[in-house]
Design a protein around this nucleic acid. Structure first.
Length: 558
RNA sequence: CGGGGCGUGGCGCAGCCUGGUAGCGCGCUCGCUUUGGGAGCGAGAAGUCGCCGGUUCGAAUCCGGCCGCCCCGACCA
């Protein structure tokens, strides 16, 4: 490919509205352009990368017996009404001229379950079907370039099995295929248990790629034996320095101390030996959620502990009416509401609010002075102990690049996908669903592979293998030499030849920005030596190589 | 949806407070010089100042409404 003929609108400065590294570099490098919030066009360079990612996914899906489909975007609303997903706020709805209703799917469970109705016998199972399809989601807040978008291409796969045990086999095949896909694309990822979410199913796991701009929080153990999404991660808090126990709670004045920090400072007490009491409203009742003073409440977990009903923090008036005090002085002793305590609140004497403005109680012992229901409702935090080995946990942002689900029979039941089993009974097909976002993989790859000059693509997904920079400035001899290098290498590699009439500095800057793994410079100086300069993008270690040895040198690097 | 910020040639920005000729850098076009890390000189092209309405002799600037985009939160198959 000749750069002079390529639409490659690189930018000298970061776009004003970009924040994430991958967002800036994708736009600056001429890979993508924005059309609307969360809606992006892939330019030729970006599409090359996307298609390389797609091809890796395709090869690994085919390797586990996947069969590629191509399913439509436009989908009859009836299918989504049947599955119960029609009213999800993220779903785009539309009508045709006759008033028939359609949705623009966010994933294709309904569509594939519909076609799975033609699977009639256990003899036809299992099946793995997949496609690369456009997904539409009315995201409330798109952000960070390709990381959270409203329209994107996803590889979604669906497995159809006789029962849960063969579903486990299909699931494991996908897990292994996904590990290979991410490894081939040069991505560091972690396989972690994830929330099943509102769409049901028996299990779900994420693949998280550590990245500054990520939206998920990845919890990992320093000893490498534990990784989890912070939403469901387990971690043990460090033990508090308890003061001496008291025979009974003792009232202490804490004027103007409304926060744990203020209270513990005023009383000279380890914040870990205090209890934070959070009045929460669920349905039409108030509950009191307790976490240790240094911990934070995880509302999703509290919701889970309450059997799935939504919770919200109580309003000031509700707090006053229920406890007779302000939020800063609330405690669990002698209250009339249900008390749910985090399991991190181990036995010992704590400082708690006295339900009286400006006063706390010290020496309060759970079990003696109040009787809570225990549940895991705290948020994991850095420094917690690993549930496997006790090592220190750390937390880092990460991008969810893949998500796999054991769905069970929900969609087959709703859509009517049944088969006749060996024993002659009709059963619903057991389904799994498996998604990967190539665009997110691109963003994650950049987040993980860049420097201050630009992208350092993994070779497998780079737009080109070799970037030949011709410093000919109209000199026919240099131009011919650069073209000869291109011709020689093009049999084995994909080459971008920068034949543009630009200054050397601009060409080098663009090469660094675009990030092809090898740069070859052909100029007057190199030709005087009968050579070219070969520079791996990642290391920047440039070597002068005789023209006759270029192929060998490139082969060593790639 | 709540909070914050922004909208001015292709890109990045100033001008707005204190109303009156729309400006800077980069990019773009042409010419000459230059050519190993984003060149120099000269000559040019290019902007409904997001949209609608109001105030005013006069609005990029003041007022009202709306739209769009970014960030934080909520939300998130």
């Amino acid at each position: 490919m000749r750069a002079s003929q390529l639409f490659l609108p690189t930018l000298r400065t970061d776009p004003a509205d970009a924040d994430a590294v991958s967002h800036k570099l994708l736009v600056r490098g001429g890979f993508i352009r924005q059309l609307a919030a969360g809606v992006w066009t892939y330019l030729p360079l970006g599409w090359r990368v996307h298609e390389k990612v797609v091809q890796i996914i395709r090869e690994e899906m085919n390797a586990i017996g996947g069969q590629e489909f191509r399913a439509p975007l436009l989908t009859p609303a009836e299918l989504w009404k049947a599955s119960g997903r029609y009213d999800i706020p993220e779903v785009f709805h539309l009508e045709d001229r006759n008033g028939r209703e359609y949705v623009l799917p966010m994933t294709h469970e309904e569509t594939f379950a519909f076609h799975a109705r033609e699977l009639q016998s256990y003899k036809q199972l299992p099946q793995i079907w997949y496609h690369f399809g456009v997904k539409e989601r009315d995201e409330p807040r798109p952000r960070a370039g390709l990381i959270r978008v409203r329209e994107f291409i996803m590889k979604d796969a669906y497995s159809f099995d006789r029962d849960e045990s063969t579903l486990d086999v299909s699931y494991e095949k996908h897990r292994e295929a996904y590990e290979r896909i991410f490894a081939r694309a040069g991505l560091e990822t972690y396989f972690v248990e994830a929330e099943v979410g509102i769409m049901g199913g028996s299990a779900s796991d994420d693949f998280l790629a550590p990245a500054e701009a990520g939206e998920n929080e990845l919890v990992t153990c320093e000893n490498g034996d534990y990784a989890a999404d912070a939403e469901i991660a387990r971690g043990a808090p460090s033990p508090p320095d308890f003061p001496a126990p008291l025979p009974a709670p003792e009232l202490v004045a804490t004027p103007d101390a409304k926060t744990i920090e203020a209270v513990s400072a005023q009383l000279g007490i380890d914040p870990r030996a205090t209890i934070k009491a959070m009045p929460m409203v669920t349905g039409d009742r108030v509950v009191l959620a307790l976490v240790r003073g240094d911990d934070r409440l995880n509302e999703e977990r509290l919701t889970g502990a309450l059997g799935g009903t939504a919770v919200r923090p109580a309003e000031d008036e509700e707090i006053r009416a229920t406890f007779g005090a302000d939020g800063g002085s609330i405690g669990p002793v002698d209250v009339q509401v249900e008390v749910i305590a985090d399991r991190g609140i181990t036995p010992g004497p704590y400082v708690v609010g006295a339900n009286r403005d400006g006063w706390h109680l010290r020496g309060v012992e759970p079990g003696r002075d109040f009787e809570p229901r225990y549940a895991e409702i705290r948020q994991v935090k850095p420094g917690d102990a690993c549930p496997i080995c006790g090592g220190r946990l750390s937390i880092q942002p990460a991008i969810e690049v893949g998500h796999i689900f054991k769905l069970g029979t929900r969609y087959p039941n709703a859509i009517g996908a049944r088969f006749l089993d060996e024993d002659g009974t009709e059963k619903p097909i057991v389904m799994g669903s498996y998604g990967i976002g190539p665009g997110r993989m691109m963003a994650a790859a950049i987040e993980q592979h860049h420097d201050d000059r630009g992208i350092t693509w993994p070779r497998t997904i780079a737009p080109f293998d070799v970037h030949v920079v011709s410093l000919d400035a109209g000199n026919a001899e240099i131009k011919a030499a650069a073209e000869a290098v291109e011709a020689e290498l093009s049999g084995s590699y994909e080459i971008l030849l920068d034949d543009r009439d630009l200054r050397p500095g601009e060409k080098f800057a663009d090469a660094d920005l675009i990030g092809c793994p090898v740069r070859i410079t052909v100029g007057r100086k190199t030709l005087e030596d009968g050579a070219v300069d070969v520079r791996p993008r990642a290391t920047g270690d440039e070597v002068r190589v005789a023209l006759s040895a270029v192929g060998g040198t490139v082969a060593e690097i790639l």
